[in-house]
């Protein structure tokens, strides 16, 4: 991704306050509801927090909007925003993966599908990690996996609860086995956090499938979902074509999952901050004296370094060159 370097230099700050723009919302002027197929005027939908006024279906929120809807105003500090994909397999389908990434970075204004940082939910400090479906379907590759692990380690180092919001198609196949192994990496970091007594909460939003559901999202202490969210291991089309049967109504929706015992609770978007704050209040006293294996301290040091880094410092790519 050599061609992206000038843009990186042009960025004002590494830990920048995100600016939330309405144009980040997906789709055109009118949007069709996935739940009741009503066509809704977009502006009305945005005013209602992207929740269908008729059937209460919760549309997928872009990462920045999710952060805004969850955290107290002005409390967000983004972390590890620098990390960009490496395309180590030189993967090419219709377009080279590196080019795809570059375009997506430009379109979304963020380096990867996961936004991670610290902030406050109704006054409770947390580490927050949000998967953004606009960035290659919220898929998990090396960077997403690394940032999730770093988020868990930051939570451990700073003794903060960890909150995830997921919307993802699963592992990012452009990164091959490196993607699959992020399932292992994220679970390893969560095992570490959990052994230290840290609390983790995952809110699954529409849609959450594949390698994300089958890894970190499913091993958090608490699993919540937004109403109507599609949640599953395999996508409904794959299942339908495998079993050659029609799928039952409501299959793989949040309500179905809760009925089958897979979710702790379904919570409406407007109630989420309050619910998260309440859950955090119940769970704060569980920290153990736990030495860990040094990762959390390393993450802390990295955070410190990131804070001190002035704009215009050597980019990560240059750092590698220097190290080798």
């Amino acid at each position: 991704m050599a061609s992206s370097k000038p843009e990186e230099e042009a960025k004002p700050s590494r830990i920048s306050r995100l600016r939330f723009k309405k144009k980040d919302m997906p789709g055109g002027l009118w949007m069709k509801c996935e739940g009741c197929t009503t066509t809704i005027y977009r502006k009305e939908l945005e005013e209602k927090g992207m929740v269908c006024p008729k059937c209460r279906f919760h549309f997928t929120l872009p990462g920045p909007a999710r952060i805004q809807a969850t955290l107290d105003d002005g409390s967000w500090t983004e972390l590890f925003a620098d990390l960009t994909s490496l395309d180590r397999l030189n993967f090419v389908d219709s377009v080279p993966y590196a080019e795809k990434i570059e375009r997506t970075v430009k379109r979304t204004g963020q380096n990867e599908a996961l936004l991670c940082g610290t902030g406050e939910i109704q006054g409770r400090p947390v580490v927050l990690a949000v998967l953004d479906f606009r960035f290659l379907g919220g898929s998990m590759g090396e960077v997403v996996g690394e940032k999730i692990a770093l988020a868990a380690e930051t939570a451990q180092a700073q003794r903060l609860p960890l909150v995830f919001f997921t919307s993802s198609g699963g592992a990012r196949m452009h990164e091959g086995m490196l993607s699959l192994m992020q399932m292992a990496k994220t679970c390893s970091a969560l095992a570490e956090l959990s052994d230290a007594g840290g609390l983790s909460i995952c809110v699954m939003t529409n849609p959450t499938t594949g390698g994300v559901t089958a890894s970190f999202a499913s091993v958090c202490d608490l699993t919540l979902a937004e109403p109507g969210a599609l949640i599953g291991f395999a996508g409904p089309r794959v299942i339908a074509s495998t079993i050659r049967q029609e799928l039952p109504p409501g299959f793989q929706r949040a309500e179905f999952l809760m009925e089958k015992g897979q979710l702790d609770a379904i919570v409406s978007r407007e109630d989420l901050p309050g619910m998260l704050a309440k859950l955090i209040d119940y769970g704060t006293a569980s920290w153990q004296e736990y030495a860990g294996r040094g990762r959390a301290n390393a993450a802390l040091k990295l955070l410190e370094d990131e804070r001190q880094k002035a704009p215009g410092d050597s980019s990560p790519e240059q750092a590698v060159d220097g190290a080798s």
């Binding site: 999202a217 499913s218 291991f233 015992g261 897979q262």
Partner: peptide, 26 residues
Amino acid sequence: GAYPGIGAEERGQSAAIAENILEMFR
């Protein structure tokens, strides 16, 4: 691959795999 079917989803295919991955670290 793990089986993609109705029963598998009902009984938590994702959760079963995720839990194995995490627990194998322990």
